[in-house]
Nucleic acid binder design. Structure first.
Lengths: 145, 145
DNA sequence: TCTTGAAGCTACAGCAGCTAGAGACATTAA
DNA sequence: TTAATGTCTCTAGCTGCTGTAGCTTCAAGA
């Protein structure tokens, strides 16, 4: 299949596929007589994997690791496991943050109920530290509590 | 206060503050005799607002809008409200996606319980379309190259 | 068979949102 | 006074794409 079909099938844009090849995330594709890239089902699987991993929030580097692991399947999977666990922790952090931020945004919307900006708290809510869930303790050297 | 103190107080790195000034997100700071930036409490509030808004997932453009609204507080706050609502919707989408992806990652970790990569499903889980929430239709059975 | 229009090619520029480095000047504590 | 630290400007780099220009190839219709 050509690059356009591959992109449609995997849900990835064509320039992105070429970019992935360029940075070595995908192997160099075979070419047709007219120099066009040709892909196999296997390539589709790999690209689909990449897309899903990106959606999971893996960096391209982590994905590269994962792919190289899958290319050598006779190793213990501790490494893949470690990568996945790290990502899981990362995602749980993000989830918690997003959840609390959603509460703040809802408050913002609720407090901005038709008045003028002078009356509404949108700006203050975001300037206020009291709803600050993340622990940015304002001084680098200081340990987190 | 100088830029370093401001950065510490707001939880924002010094080059980032200068960057924000450069792109017009923060007003140009007053300077000391020695040409160093000096900030007021008001500037700290503004920067804190920016940091929180960034954490909420607002783009710098959205933040710019919000700030310009807050600079003209005699307007109705419908615009701020609209921005906040749009962000809220965006955040709820992200939350939903992250939540379902967390489930997948947990499955990945669970299925990779000490075997070798050949036995574990980390790779397959991410290549599998059956948990695919997004609607990228793709046809099966298109010939491999 | 010819033609046309979509899809492909390479190469490069640009985007957001920072971050890091070089080399010079300012401030501050001892 | 001197040394350390902080700040200055400027420039370049980073990730992960996305878009453009100017060309070639391919598939389908007349």
């Amino acid at each position: 299949m050509t690059i356009g079909k591959l992109g449609q099938a995997a849900g990835v844009k064509v320039p992105t596929i070429r970019y992935y090849e360029q940075i070595g995330l995908l192997p160099e594709a075979e070419r047709s007589g007219g120099n066009q890239r040709l892909y196999s089902r296997k390539a589709l699987d790999r690209l689909t994997f990449v897309r899903h991993a990106r959606e999971l929030g893996f960096t391209l580097d982590a994905i590269r690791d994962l792919l190289s692991l899958s290319d050598h399947p006779d190793q213990p999977c501790a490494a893949a496991d470690a990568i996945a666990k790290a990502q899981l922790a990362e995602i749980e952090k993000r989830l918690a943050r997003l959840a609390s931020l959603k509460v703040e945004l809802k408050r913002m919307v609720a407090q901005c109920a038709g008045g003028s900006i002078a009356d509404c708290r949108v700006i203050e809510v975001l300037g206020d530290h009291s709803h600050c869930s993340t622990d940015h303790s304002h001084r680098e050297g200081e340990g987190a509590s």
